[in-house]
């Protein structure tokens, strides 16, 4: 069962107030759940739908449109690895493969210890620091294998 905490409820109330129509609060609410739970379960979609008078199908249709919402539990750290043109030209493909191997999730996915989830992502608008990756909210730019080692190893 998914329930909003009372803290959530407060936030949600504020979010809904920002918009002329309730429906507009859908993305912020999805983001709220994604941040807290690491993914959005069917139960959460139903709960969000109830809050906003939307059918759960509609919630799922919006949610499934965006790659940054996850439908499966994710690790503590979500690594979004840019592989778009600027990063690719600067070696992102190799570095992505390296990171996958290092974490034991070639091609992306969640590590067994649930610490990391690795995903390819399209341009994250940090081309000048290419190649780059985003871990949770932090951008890490001008990556090299060494730098990746250092960053990943330093994460608690």
């Amino acid at each position: 069962m998914f329930v909003f905490t009372s803290e959530d409820e407060n936030k949600i109330e504020k979010i809904i107030k920002k918009y002329p129509v309730k429906q507009s609060a859908l993305l912020p609410l999805l983001t709220l759940v994604q941040r807290r739970e690491g993914y959005i379960s069917p139960e959460a979609m139903q709960a969000i739908g109830k809050k906003l008078d939307l059918s759960p199908g509609y919630v799922q249709s919006v949610m499934s449109f965006y790659t940054m919402y996850h439908t499966e539990p994710t690790g503590k750290y979500i690594i979004l690895f840019c592989h778009n043109i600027s990063c690719q030209l600067n070696g992102a493909d190799n570095l992505f493969a390296y990171t996958g191997q290092k974490l034991g999730v070639s091609g992306g996915g969640t590590t067994e210890d649930k610490k990391f989830t690795l995903h390819k992502e399209e341009c994250l608008a940090a081309c000048c620091g290419a190649p780059m990756m985003r871990i949770n909210d932090i951008f890490h730019e001008n990556l090299t294998k060494e730098k990746i080692d250092q960053i990943l190893d330093s994460l608690p």
Binding site: N84, L89, C127
Partner: peptide, 24 residues
Amino acid sequence: GSGALIVMDHTVNIVEAALRMSYF
């Protein structure tokens, strides 16, 4: 891209770049 410039030199195969962008 979106108002940005990406400069590539002659070592880049333009088909590969076009392929990457068309994937995007």
